[in-house]
Design a protein around this nucleic acid. Structure first.
Lengths: 225, 225
DNA sequence: ACCTGAACACCGTTCAAGT
DNA sequence: ACCTGAACACCGTTCAAGT
């Protein structure tokens, strides 16, 4: 919420007094999304929930996309607490990235919005600062550090997106059996490694390996070439 | 297409002869998506384009989601050519990942489907094999290699997703000016690094740094701890 | 077996009018 | 300034019937 410009300046009241507020709209949207999932959040449903009409909402948010971004901002402001970070640059970068990842992983509806922006929200900028600064202290130039942060961001977004989709698919077993079928009939002559791990593929890719990959990435970034 | 089970077995013809085929449906969907974008691909529009009714399509694909996955499979089978890869493991992994990334980056509509599955399609498995094998030859265990491949996959998906969204946003300048506003009013006392790069943030994050991040990640993965 | 027509249960958003 | 009602231009999918 903070940092996001109001669509209409809150000038003193010539005209009709507001029945609903932007805060109420966002608060209700948050409840709807956490209780019923992001695809149940429609402008019509939200209007009903807030006791108003669909078009009243458009007086408080520009459109549905802005509503979703506001929701992410609200979530970040509400849950991101600044932790005590390690002093050593490598560990600081790892901890800051892990904190962002943890916050994102905790709310699965975020994926739809996640792809919406690169800086998440003003509340997340402090973590970005820690990562960029840690990389600079680790020996990178500022430019390299920004690029390094981006690489970490790509990796983090990708993990969240793939994980969220996998969770969605888990209900639908048609894909799972298709995967089994493909992996069960691999030609060990052509694809020996995949054939070798075929029956362990599901559990292996199901493990949470975000920290491992992150460590590898950060170590690779800090190994100045 | 290949590898995907037909919903109805092609038994010999008791009944009405088919007017449209699954291939025709997918081919028309491919044209629609490349000519007008993925959000113009609707079952109704596709039916009209194919000269039939919406419900006729459901006789050839299970639903819209299956259609999209079939489309990705079709694209992969049609564009992924197996290149001559370097012999050295590190370079082989880099080249195989870059080839996948290049194919994905070339078709922006892929993002919606990308999140749908982890193995892309049978045509992509050869590239996965090269990556896993390269990592094993580089000194990892098979399990570590699969996890390493996943890290590369996360990084690649993330880059594509973020890039695609940035491109979509570029038209809408409201977000851009919001970003400028946030970065223009950074407190150098609190966020010194970000304040330092504030005016270079857009060009810096606009650069294509996929290969750099990939190199860092792969080097980190191969530096056995 | 394959296709059609009509219907169900929805969407986001614009426009014109009301208070 | 804020809200309402009606309408526009769509969706994906189910169901019952036709050939």
């Amino acid at each position: 919420m903070e940092g996001m410009p109001q669509p209409s300046a809150p000038r003193r009241s010539p005209g009709r007094p507001p029945r609903i507020s932007r805060e109420e709209v966002i608060g209700t949207a948050r409840r709807l999304v956490t209780e019923e999932g992001v695809d149940r959040l429609t402008m019509r449903r939200l209007a009903a929930e807030v006791g108003s009409t669909p078009m009243a909402l458009y007086h408080h948010v520009r459109n549905k996309e802005e509503l979703l971004v506001l929701l992410l901002d609200d979530y970040a402001a509400r849950t991101l607490r600044r932790p005590e970070l390690p002093a050593r640059p490598r560990e600081r970068v790892l901890a800051a990235a892990a904190a962002i990842h943890e916050a994102l992983a905790a709310c699965p509806w975020i994926v739809e919005v996640l792809t919406a922006d690169d800086l998440m929200s003003t509340s997340a900028l402090w973590f970005v600062e820690q990562i960029v600064d840690g990389l600079v202290e680790g020996g990178l130039s500022v430019e390299q550090a920004v690029h390094g942060y981006r690489a970490i961001w790509y990796y983090t977004v990708g993990e969240i997106v793939v994980r969220a989709t996998a969770a969605r698919r888990r209900a639908d077993d048609a894909r799972a059996t298709y995967r089994e079928q493909v992996f069960g009939s691999l030609d060990p002559g052509e694809l020996p490694r995949l054939a070798q791990v075929a029956d362990r593929w599901a559990p292996l890719t199901g493990e949470d390996t975000y920290p491992d990959g992150l460590r590898a990435l950060v170590d690779g970034l800090l190994a100045v070439r």
